[in-house]
Nucleic acid binder design. Structure first.
Lengths: 272, 272
DNA sequence: CGTCTAATTGAAGCATCTCAACATGCGTGG
DNA sequence: CCACGCATGTTGAGATGCTTCAATTAGACG
């Protein structure tokens, strides 16, 4: 595992591509605050407490495991920049991805109350993280009880996304599943200010998509061509653009409720 | 929706079948305590606080919705006796079940911090419930902070089960999926004392199983025959018996970790 | 300009689905 | 105690969405 600890909190990001990346040129705490405000309200005292939260910046290369199944970590990781995913391997070596993570997410938050981790977290791209000790989080919650509830809510939304994925993998066709995933990522990115005009950075390979949706890469490739041919999206070089957002939503049978996004500014306007 | 409110807390259960049912002839709070102790430790003060928790007993018939998608309930439901499931319907009318619930579960606990419910809960059999107002739970948490964490842990385990289901539906064959589900239900039932000798009450129809595992009833029927023919289980009249528990575990590629069961007495001895 | 990863294509196979009967069990009313 | 009705389970046969295998092509990078 190649984790490079950084001497200082020098976390300026290159800001490749869309203008939305500039939003992230803030301190780690600000990103966490923005994330939490996308799912609930924060009082000034809570914001202040969050700014005092102990965080250690870390960089990781692409395709490296950050958390491993069976481990018992004593800290959680806030994703600052890049993309992560949770996954498990099954008996015959097949991989199932169970979530994608974008800046503001804390994929291993469950380890705060689950002694043994039951999934792996790995980086899809080179990423910047902030490590927050469990003890620091618990101290924060002791001081600001409502914040504990907001983090709890965060994990509940996580679970709501799992439910929606179960529905997709269990009962929807490949075409609908892929369209749905794209809708989900666009709305989530938008909620933390990482999207402009239904265009998001999304550096997923077709293999990643296949492993997330329970499909083969070959089938993902062909279905992706169909979705493109239908004029719904452009998807290349790690960038997803919804050319026809209402059409994509419809194709993906996408109902945003389950994401429980609060922020008015963050929610996607209704189709048409 | 036929919900019959009961005048008093007369919740004696018929205790059909296995001797394990007698365990449930306790007050609702005792069941909740047993459930929580299966996933963590409780102090005497916490147990006392739980016994003071406001709960209203309710009975429901089989096949009735208890919570509906889109609703904003102000109370949660503790299942005392019977079986429930969470489900969603997709565009073409297909159903996907995303969890089964056994006594001690609180399937709508997420509504405590999620304003709009994103799933339905319905009864698989006639069931007895205890309704607990959100306000009562929040008051309990204010008094006993560690209890909040234990309930949080409860929802995290819920999510861990979702992850495992995603893996199953996404990457495992019908045979393995069904075997895995059976293992899961046996271990969960055992954790709350509702199983003896790898035999549990499990009144699922083949349609329920199909809708939970993303399969057709026809295929479930045929695969069930294979599993029976392999000498792993008996499954009839709402009862599941693991004739060959080690074999069933192996067939289901079942690793118990994700259930995060604590109680030593509740954990299933290793195979062989 | 080779090297590696990711995307693409063709062709054959099968796990699982759909449709459509038919069987079984069980509660209920007569 | 029997007859009906309904839910559930079972079976056969044909269809298909998706997989697997195996190349081939395209891009990114030093």
């Amino acid at each position: 595992m190649t984790i490079r600890f950084q001497a200082s909190a020098n976390l300026q990001h290159p800001g490749r591509g869309g203008g939305e990346a500039s939003h992230l040129s803030h301190a780690p705490a600000e990103l966490l605050i923005r994330k939490l405000e996308s799912i609930g309200a924060l009082s000034p005292a809570e914001r202040a407490a969050l700014r005092r939260l102990e965080m250690t910046p870390v960089s990781v290369d692409a395709h490296h495991d950050i958390v491993c199944e069976g481990a018992s970590p004593t800290a959680v990781t806030l994703l600052l920049h890049g993309f992560l995913c949770r996954y498990k391997l099954v008996a015959d070596g097949k991989r199932q991805i169970m979530s994608f993570h974008i800046p503001g997410d804390i994929p291993d938050l469950p380890t705060l109350f689950l002694d043994v981790t039951d999934f792996n977290v790995c980086s899809l791209t080179s990423s910047q993280l902030a490590v927050i000790p469990h003890s620091a989080l618990l101290a924060l919650f002791a001081e600001q009880r409502q914040l504990a509830y907001l983090f709890w809510r965060n994990t509940l939304i996580d679970a709501a996304v799992f439910r929606e994925w179960i529905v997709g993998i269990g009962r929807r066709s490949a075409f609908v599943r892929i369209a749905h995933l794209f809708c989900e990522m666009i709305v989530r990115m938008q909620a933390v200010g990482l999207s402009s005009n239904y265009s998001v950075e999304l550096p997923l390979t077709q293999t990643d998509i296949a492993d997330a949706l329970g499909l083969s890469t070959v089938h993902v490739n062909r279905t992706l061509q169909e979705i493109r041919a239908a004029g719904l999206i452009k998807f290349f070089r790690g960038r997803l653009i919804a050319i026809d957002w209402p059409g994509l939503r419809k194709a993906g049978e996408f109902e945003q409720v389950y994401l429980h996004v609060q922020k008015a500014a963050a929610s996607v306007p209704p189709a048409r």
